[in-house]
Each structure stands twice: as C-alpha cells, then as structure tokens.
Computed example of a mutant assay.
Amino acid sequence: MIQRLFAERAAAIVAEDPGAIGLAAAGSWLSNELDEFSDLDLVLVTKHKVGGDKQRMMAWAQKFGALLSAFTGEHVGEPRLLICLYDDPLLHVDIKFLTLEEFAFRVEDPVILSDVFGQLDQSLRVTTAEWPGPGYQWIEDRFWVWIHYGLTKLGRGEYFEAIDFLSAIRNMVLGPLLLVSQGQLPRGVRKLEKHLPGSILQQLKGTLATHDRASILKAIHTCIEMYRDLRSNLFDSDIQLQTGTEKKVLEYYDEIAELPQKVNN
C-alpha cells in the first residue's frame, strides 16, 4: 500500500537525521483502516522546535518525496501541521511537527515508526492520550442559538447560507453525538456511513436539503428532532438544559414555517 511505503521511506530518512527524535503514524493507520483513498497522518518529533516555521517545515517535507504543494494548518487551528500533496505516487500526507515535550500531549497513541533512542516509546509509557469529547453543556448552550440563526437565513431567503448552516450542525453537533452513541470517537461526520445503523443513517439523510425553502425547513426540523433524541440518551442530569431558549426558538420555527415562499432567481 502506498501509504505504508511512503511512511517506511520517511522513517528511514528520519532515523538518519541528527535533528530528529522520531516519527510516528496516526489517523487511519491506528485502526487498520488504510485503503486506497486514505490520507497518511505523520507526527515528526524533532530536537528543536520546527512547528510554526513554514520554511523549516517545508524543508523537512521535501526530504520525504516529490512534494507538489503544501500549506500550513491555521484553518484548523494547528499551525504546526503541514498539509502536503506528493507525486509519484499521488498521495495526501499530513505532517505534524512536534518537540518531545509537545508529543506528550496527544489525543491518541500513534504507532511509532522511527525511535532511535527510545524517547517516543518512553513518552507514550509515562503519559496518557486524551481525546477531547464533545462538551455536552457547550453544545446545549449553543444549539438553539444556532437553530435560530439558520431560521433567520431561511426566512430572508438566503438558502445557500442555510444549507451551509445545516452542514455545520451535522459536523459540530449531530455527527459527534451520533458517533459517541455508537461507541466511536467524535470525529465530526467521519465514517458515519460505516458506524450508524441503517435507520439512524436514513434519518440523518433527512438533514440534507436542496435549494428549496420547504426542503431546508424540513431538514432543520429533522436536526431538532435528532438533537433532542441524542440529548435525552447521552446527557446526564448535570447538564443545564436551555429550556427557555428552546421554547422561544421552536415558536420562531413555527413563525418561519408560516411565511410565504420567497421567489429567488
């Protein structure tokens, strides 16, 4: 498989470089789910800080193969990440650049590919990975405000914006909660098709809307129904429900539902 061949080549390069401590693999590699469409997620640990310095990050990436293009990951809040596309073979590779101290703080235990002096193994043995689960209170405090936002855009006739809103609700709320309900890590909407029972997947399809007022309104309603079901099954009594906000937003939903169809050219 091209991902493993690339990783083996990169590990050999890292093992010979005096500026490196080691290399590890994360993502699909950990669950043995690599296939022909998978990205390769690498963690490069260096003696001196490289993450955040694009020039030095690019220099490292160029050692690993025929680099076509790369950019840093500020858009996902991670300037230490370099998102790369290589040629021969064509492969997407994400490289996160960490120091040994930074390596200890992680969301999952990566597979070590190169660790000449055993420092990565030692770090994994004395520290614990912590995946940040969805904050139920964080979601509850925001969900109804978000629903109101989507309804206002629908009411104004901004259908593209409303459709984007639905995508955000799936990614930030429904997807993570659905994955948790199935005993999976809350990775947005990743691999929902694999993990969800058919009936729930069919219900989730109801949150997909076309550029049509009735379609969007129905999709928002489905989002509300699914969230309330998930909330009742997952949240414990410590979560403060925003019942007042919920009531007002549901009343506003009814108002929007009664508005006439806007004509959009």
Results as ranks from 00 to 15, higher is better:
Pro134Phe: 02
Leu124Asp: 03
Tyr136Asn: 00
Ile216Asn: 08
Gly65Ser: 01
Phe64Thr: 08
Leu23Ala: 06
Gly118Phe: 02
Asp41Cys: 04
Lys47Val: 09
Ser28His: 07
Ala104Lys: 10
Arg170Cys: 06
Lys96Leu: 11
Leu192Asn: 00
Leu174Met: 05
Lys248Ile: 11
Leu201Cys: 00
Gly198Gln: 06
Glu255Trp: 14
Phe143Glu: 10
Met57Ile: 12
Ile256Lys: 14
Trp29Leu: 00
Trp131Ala: 02
Leu208Thr: 04
Leu34Arg: 00
Asp41Met: 04
Ala61Leu: 01
Trp138Tyr: 13
Val180Ile: 07
Ala7Asn: 05
Ile112Pro: 07
Ala257Ile: 11
Phe37Leu: 09
Ala24Tyr: 00
Ile256Leu: 13
Ile147Tyr: 01
Leu179Ala: 09
Ile112Trp: 00
Leu201Met: 12
Leu30Ile: 08
Lys262Val: 14
Phe160Arg: 11
Thr128Gln: 09
Gln202Gly: 11
Gln122His: 14
Asp254Trp: 08
Ala10Asn: 09
Glu158Lys: 07
Cys223Asp: 00
Gly188Ile: 03
Thr222Glu: 15
His211Gln: 14
Asp35Trp: 01
Gln261Arg: 13
Tyr252Phe: 15
Leu177Ser: 04
Val43Ile: 15
Ser181Ile: 05
Leu178Asp: 00
Ser123Asn: 10
Ala168Lys: 15
Phe235Gly: 05
Asn264Asp: 09
Lys63Ala: 02
Leu179Lys: 03
His195Asp: 14
Ser114Arg: 00
Ile239His: 03
Arg187Ile: 03
Val14Asn: 04
Met57Tyr: 15
Ala26Met: 06
Leu34Gly: 05
His195Gly: 00
Ile147Lys: 12
Val45Tyr: 07
Met58Ile: 13
Leu82Thr: 12
Phe117Glu: 15
Ala257Pro: 09
Glu108Pro: 01
Gly244Glu: 14
Asp109Ser: 01
Arg80Tyr: 13
Tyr227Lys: 02
Gly77Leu: 12
Gly188Asn: 04
Trp144Lys: 11
Asp17Cys: 08
Asp254Arg: 15
Lys205Arg: 09
Thr46Tyr: 06
His92Thr: 07
Ala25Pro: 03
Asp229Val: 10
Ser167Gln: 14
Val116His: 03
Leu68Thr: 07
Tyr86Ala: 04
Phe103Met: 03
Glu161Met: 12
Glu158Leu: 13
Met226Pro: 08
Leu154Asp: 13
Gly198Leu: 08
Pro89Gln: 05
Glu193Asp: 05
Asp238Gly: 05
Leu208Gly: 14
Leu177Ala: 01
His92Leu: 01
Arg9Lys: 07
Glu158Thr: 09
Asn265Glu: 12
Ile147Gly: 06
Pro134Lys: 04
His195Lys: 12
Leu42Tyr: 02
Val45Phe: 04
Gly157His: 11
Gly244Leu: 09
Glu140His: 10
Leu179Met: 10
Ala12Cys: 10
Val263Tyr: 12
Ala257Cys: 11
Lys248Glu: 15
Glu130Cys: 10
Leu241Tyr: 12
